[in-house]
Write a protein that binds this DNA or RNA. Sequence first.
DNA 1: GTCTATAAGGAGATAGAC
DNA 2: GTCTATCTCCTTATAGAC
Lengths: 191, 191
Amino acid sequence: MAQKVSVKDKILATASDLFYTQGYNTTGINQIIAEAGIAIGSLYKHYRSKNDLLYSYLEKQETEFFINLDDYLKGENDPKVKLQKLISYRIELQRKTNYAGCHFIKANAEVGRKDEHLNELIKNHKAKQKAYLYQIINQIYPDHAQALHTILFTDIVFSMIEGAVLSATIQANTDDLESIQNAIQQIVLHY
Amino acid sequence: MAQKVSVKDKILATASDLFYTQGYNTTGINQIIAEAGIAIGSLYKHYRSKNDLLYSYLEKQETEFFINLDDYLKGENDPKVKLQKLISYRIELQRKTNYAGCHFIKANAEVGRKDEHLNELIKNHKAKQKAYLYQIINQIYPDHAQALHTILFTDIVFSMIEGAVLSATIQANTDDLESIQNAIQQIVLHY
DNA sequence: GTCTATAAGGAGATAGAC
DNA sequence: GTCTATCTCCTTATAGAC
């Protein structure tokens, strides 16, 4: 069973790349089939519509994001270092993708809340990211005896990361991501 | 000189509203002229292209954003209160616009850095926002004798605001904006 | 799986009459 | 300023032959 790279996977890989780098609305079906080197009949055999392709793209990103993050943090036990590395993970991702930003934020800005299914995918992803962060911060401050409670600290760190990733897509650099990494490091070491 | 509302202004107002609420790429020229109740000939008499309309829209937003912010903070002298009110300003803006987010971030996500002129407009706006914030924070900590330097503190507050505004567009609420307002309040009061 | 043809509609933009 | 006509091109999606 299975060829090396199935046609279905090739379609999704090409569409994903185009949606991410040049946007969903400005990517046409014809461009997808041309760059994937497949026939239009094959595309509509595997995917009902362009919208269906968008969902599949984000569902795959959702899975891969956390698999790669787990892999990146594997073997690290100090939660303070984990938090630093979580930001390093985002920095490396931005550099690798030429500062293309977060897949989900981009889709949100292009399509928005009109599409309920899409909005659910995006909200779920962001909730998972926040929960992941909470779990690390809770290990740093297990007794909650800090100036800022764990939940509130998670909220502000989450917002910082979101804002700094956004800034990377505008400025085409990781300056703000490095700033917040530096500041969070200082906060965690001193308090 | 001047009618009550010039045709040129009406075009820009309609286009601005549509670009902001439903996006630039998904808004057509025909929709703009229909909702503005003007003729297509008039549109192209005042604006060279749809792209030209996008620039004019953001240039006007740039001006209005700071005029309204100045007005909102007018009469407030305590920099700590100013910082709180600056975030309240963003919270009110999001509630008023049904959580449509930041005009510039949306344009950045839809068009991106491909359009150099657009990217310049966006970078300038964000730089001005940061400078505005820096000026307030510098009044709070004029001697810099704090754990976090003024520049670094400005960076993280800026990222927090950006991230929390973004979150408002995804969640259709101001929870994260209120969280960061709360946290910043605590930080400023205690340190 | 491939190919081509085509439907049905929308896009941005221009030109000319009034 | 208004109106309508039109140009050219592109869009998503379907159908059928091979």
